[in-house]
Design a protein around this nucleic acid. Structure first.
Lengths: 163, 163
DNA sequence: GACAGATAGTAGGAAGTCAGAGTAAACTGT
DNA sequence: ACAGTTTACTCTGACTTCCTACTATCTGTC
């Protein structure tokens, strides 16, 4: 099934031949895109027995990390960098599965808190261990490369206003 | 808008505190996911004036690189690593915009070729230059990091059977 | 030849994301 | 005090991706 050549090296050659420019950025961006594609498939496969996908797992993990186990939906969207409607949808699914509960905000009647339930807390721990067991989809990646990737991408995230 | 802390460093601390394991893989995977999110938004924004999204641009660029400007849909799916139905959808959109044309395969009556049109060839060149102008969304990333990312991810892609 | 199994493409449906619009509530400046 | 702005969430709709199922066609083997 694997291709007989590296498609990104091939793209680099074609890109150079046409003088389209920014060749290094193109290959880096394509590598990241492809890596994400591989990762997401493996991660979602590992989460499938838990009826979770990565976005729902992220929301659940975020809630489990908070002091009170609850967060306004808007905070969740900020931390996960997703659209408010996506948060609504994600919490809808988690709530339907009994993993979180919507609770009115104690002082701000506009806001709604998503609060993780005991079932949610239990599930997120199991799911996290399942993800760790498959190295978050990074099996086959040399250990020294892990920190190289993280550090290299840190400047991108920082420049993009992540923190 | 940026958070007052690095959400990934925060996740690392929480992950360690719970003993969930594979901390380095978790941070690397999360970094890749977040980088992809940033990239895709910038790339799609740059492609928006051309009525393209990244997946359609990729298909168009792939066709433009071939000798004859045409490829069976199945080959496109293999190279881009997407589901056959996604290829159908992508080519539907490109065909509706007059950027490719469906042509019967000369010898295999099951197969359909997607052939790039002159309009498609012209557009893909302009779009490529627009992407290069924004460094493929990697603006703000130190130049030395570009090759580090690509090389680090190469082992992942290779191990995943990319080539 | 004939037929079982593989391959190519598409239709229908589920899930996820985002954008725009709308409603309700809280903040802000005069 | 209060009019105007901002913030919080949700509804609807568009778009993309995948999965399952299906038809048509090709290929290898008997």
């Amino acid at each position: 099934m694997p291709l007989p050549f590296d498609p990104i090296a091939e793209a680099r050659r074609n890109w150079e031949a046409r003088g389209w420019g920014a060749v290094d950025a193109m290959t880096a961006a394509t590598s990241i895109t492809r890596a994400h594609q591989i990762l997401l498939r493996r991660i979602d496969a590992a989460l499938e027995p838990f009826c979770l996908v990565f976005s729902r797992f992220e929301a659940l993990a975020l809630l489990s990390f908070t002091r009170t186990g609850a967060l306004p939906l808007a905070r969740i969207g900020e931390r996960l960098q997703v659209h408010p409607t996506s948060v609504t949808n994600t919490i809808d699914r988690l709530e339907a599965d009994g993993l979180v509960a919507r609770v009115p905000h104690p002082t701000d009647r506009r806001a709604t808190l998503a609060e993780i339930t005991p079932a949610g807390r239990s599930l997120v721990g199991d799911a996290a261990k399942a993800l760790a067991a498959v190295d978050f989809g990074l099996e086959g990646m040399a250990g020294t490369h892990l920190s190289a990737v993280e550090q290299s991408l840190q400047s991108l995230r920082s420049a993009a206003g992540d923190f």
